[in-house]
């Protein structure tokens, strides 16, 4: 199963990179969202999948799945939400001020 997840991660990453390289700011933001999905899956797969029960000691099982990647991902999910929200608003404000979401047109703007 890990191999399939890893290939899925590869596909998601490729899609994310392609979106990030595009000119439209909206696509770039979508790209970051997809990239973070890919990374979360990647971290989880690296810890090994389903080698035990849920990491709750109340379950009193023989073995538990690796809890560390889960903790890392939990942090990552919340952070990526914050970042996505921030750049979404950045894009929205940029559009309000400049009237475009085309990055190529934005670069000519000298705001100083």
């Amino acid at each position: 199963m890990e191999t399939i997840i890893i290939f899925l991660v590869g596909i998601l990453t490729a899609v994310a990179i392609y979106l990030l390289l595009s000119k439209s700011l909206i696509r770039v933001i979508l790209g970051t969202a997809i990239l973070s999905h890919a990374v979360h899956l990647l971290i989880l797969a690296m810890g090994g999948l389903k080698e035990g029960t849920v990491p709750l000691l109340g379950e009193e099982a023989e073995s538990y799945v690796d809890a560390l990647p889960q903790a890392l991902i939990l942090t990552a999910i919340v952070i990526s939400f914050a970042v996505t929200a921030f750049i979404l608003v950045l894009a929205y404000r940029a559009y309000q001020e400049l009237g475009t979401d085309d990055l190529d047109e934005m670069r000519g703007v000298n705001d100083e």
Binding site: V54, L56, L57, G58, L74, V78
Partner: peptide, 8 residues
Amino acid sequence: HNQPGGGF
């Protein structure tokens, strides 16, 4: 603390 859940 003991079940799924927590601050986040």
